[in-house]
């Protein structure tokens, strides 16, 4: 059976809007953010994300796990880019070294060296801001849209009945998968299985994960067969369906969608004129004497 995200009715900015309008705003936000590497522009998007977060009305206790995950994820990848110096190759050509750290040892005649450059540091920071804005806007959605409205929300975006309902089921599949994973984990631990004791090479480690992966996968497949049967038995997909839930756009929804369109169009035009590319402040270059 499908379970839902921890949605609750809240007095929040997101929930003040129609869910379809919000999805449109969200999509425009995501696409627009992707055009830019300029930290000054990214801070604009970060500011939007922060306003949405702080007006979401979701308590820290409710979603601290999600935040920890996002922060861990974002910091890890930014750090990885910073340390390897890869990832930013396309956006900057020149590097200005601040300092170079050399490891006091060698491995097979190779001495690990870390060049700390202005560009790398700024690129890592830009990436951090960018990914954090995208991830936090995404994670807020399941907490803020009534699960009973998923189907109609997608249907109103112009998707056909079948695809809209499939999106509805998909949205709810994720937390269901999480629940099944926990149940399987418990069942296998009760059989003396300890995931902490995984050892060996990658392949044997993956093989040792089979007791978790196989039941969860099979359960998901069997569960989707049940869902298909249950839908068939009640005449799903025979023609145009009525959606019981009715949603109405209000003035503010049109304003939001207009704003979304403006941001998107503005971003497209700005990037066409080469605005918003990776930016290195002059004074930093002066500081390192470049």
């Amino acid at each position: 059976m499908l379970v839902s995200w921890r949605y609750r009715e809240r007095k929040s900015l997101i929930q003040a809007f129609d869910p379809s309008a919000w999805i449109i705003f969200y999509a425009c936000f995501i696409v627009s953010t992707m055009f830019f590497w300029d930290l000054r522009v990214l801070f604009f998007f970060l500011a939007i994300a922060l306003v949405v977060i702080f007006t979401s009305g979701i308590k820290w206790r409710e979603m601290y796990r999600a935040w920890l995950f996002i922060c861990g994820f974002v910091v890890f990848f930014s750090l990885l880019t910073f340390l390897t110096g890869r990832g930013g190759m396309e956006v900057y050509e020149q590097e200005h070294t601040i300092t170079t750290l050399r490891a006091p040892f060698t491995l097979f005649k190779w001495q690990p060296t870390l060049d700390i450059t202005v560009e790398r540091a700024l690129f890592a920071l830009s990436q951090l801001v960018r990914v954090f804005s995208l991830a936090s806007m995404t994670i807020l959605i399941p907490y803020s849209i009534n699960p009973a409205h998923y189907g109609i929300t997608f249907h109103r975006l112009g998707l056909p009945d079948k695809i809209a309902y499939a999106m509805d089921l998909t949205m709810r599949f994720i937390p269901t998968f999480g629940r099944d994973f926990r149940l399987t984990m418990d069942a296998q631990r009760a059989r003396g299985y300890e995931i902490e004791k995984l050892s060996g090479g990658i392949i044997s480690q993956v093989r040792k994960l089979a007791p978790l992966i196989v039941p969860v996968t099979i359960h998901a497949i069997a569960g989707s067969e049940d869902i298909i049967d249950a839908m068939d038995l009640r005449g799903f997909g025979i023609g145009r369906r009525t959606w019981l839930v009715q949603l109405q756009y209000r003035m503010r929804d049109y304003v939001l969608m207009g704003l979304a369109a403006l941001i998107l169009i503005g971003s497209v035009i700005a990037s066409m004129f080469g605005f918003g590319k990776f930016w290195v402040p002059e004074f930093l270059l002066h500081m390192v004497g470049g």
Partner: peptide, 8 residues
């Protein structure tokens, strides 16, 4: 309760 959560 549910065998499908453990068989692999």
């Amino acid at each position: 309760q549910s065998p499908s959560h453990m068989l692999f």
